[in-house]
């Protein structure tokens, strides 16, 4: 029997925000829903959002879920977490936050929290007219055929949750949990990502040590370091979402970048800029850096 927390059981037995939201053509209000999963997969979530258009804000969130105890509890938790947030704020919600809200989920049930996050993205992207599936099919090969999961999706869940084993990947997004023929491929992906991570942090740390111990970064060092962090740490995450970034110029502490792919047209690009790029560069290169899009 699964060892669910009190919170999971409570939200399963007494779910909050269940049901659909009817579109009533209220002015200034948009109603949209996002879907993930299917009966074949064993779980599916339809997330309904009521959005105040002017403020880009989630007024109400409701869910319809086909799935197990933790799938229903995760859906309910998600709706509680995002009500009142702006869409940009909501997009920052990770599957980890959904799991934390529930006081944790059994490892094998982490995919329920990932499903919540994916449905949220699906709903917001749909509202913003971004086609997610399209990017994935074009840019990433299907790795797990049983559950239809592409490489960018697997990369993302590995990076965001710092996963180290194939079993964890199956627990988080089911990939590899069917016939098992893609297990070796997932294993390779994990190793590649771990290797990238180790190499990056080793190099960046070494260069930081040099920079901090001896003298301020020269302009050349600064630009090289920024380029390196963008290439090795920022772009993999953006690519997983169908976006990309290119370094345009560096003037003193101002880093100018060009947002590409999905990021270019995405209205949460400000968030991407500040969270994914600027904070990372501040941390890795210089705390005084400011990033702007050109």
């Amino acid at each position: 029997m699964w060892d669910y927390t009190e919170k999971v059981l409570d939200l399963f037995y007494n779910p909050k925000n269940q049901g659909a939201i009817a579109a009533d053509n209220e002015s200034g209000i948009a109603v949209v829903f996002g879907e993930v999963g299917s009966i074949a997969c064993g779980d599916a979530l339809r997330l309904h959002l009521k959005i105040e258009i002017a403020q880009d804000k989630i007024l109400d969130a409701r869910f319809q879920t086909f799935g197990c105890t933790s799938a229903i509890a995760s859906s309910s938790a998600l709706t509680e977490l995002i009500k009142g947030l702006t869409l940009d704020e909501a997009l920052k919600i990770t599957n980890r936050e959904i799991a934390d809200y529930l006081g944790g989920l059994p490892e094998a049930k982490m995919h329920c929290s990932v499903m919540g996050q994916e449905a949220l993205e699906a709903a917001i992207y749909k509202y913003r007219g971004i086609e997610v599936e399209h990017h994935e099919e074009e840019e990433g090969a299907l790795v797990c055929r049983c559950f239809g999961i592409s490489e960018p999706k697997i990369r993302r869940v590995i990076i965001e949750n710092d996963l180290t084993t194939v079993e964890q990947v199956s627990n988080y997004i089911k990939a590899g949990g069917g016939c098992g023929s893609c297990l070796a491929g997932i294993e390779d992906l994990i190793q590649a990502i771990q290797a990238e991570k180790a190499a990056t942090s080793a190099r960046v740390n070494a260069e930081l040590a040099i920079a901090q111990d001896y003298r301020p970064l020269t302009t050349l060092q600064k630009i090289n370091l920024i380029q390196q962090v963008l290439t090795e740490e920022v772009r993999p995450v953006l690519l997983a979402d169908g976006g990309d970034v290119e370094l345009y110029d560096v003037k003193d502490d101002v880093v100018q970048v060009i947002l590409k792919g999905a990021c270019g047209s995405c209205s949460s690009s400000t968030t991407t800029l500040k969270i994914a790029i600027e904070s990372r560069l501040k941390e890795r290169v210089l705390p005084s850096l400011v990033v702007e899009a050109v």
């Binding site: 779910p15 269940q18 049901g19 879907e35 299917s38 009966i39 074949a40 599916a44 979530l45 339809r46 319809q64 879920t65 086909f66 229903i72």
Partner: peptide, 19 residues
């Protein structure tokens, strides 16, 4: 009542789900 699927839920992935 919690489920998005019903006996008459047409459309959504129905074809694949019912296979």
């Amino acid at each position: 009542e919690l489920s998005p699927f019903t006996s008459d839920s047409a459309g959504w992935l129905q074809e694949r789900d019912m296979t």
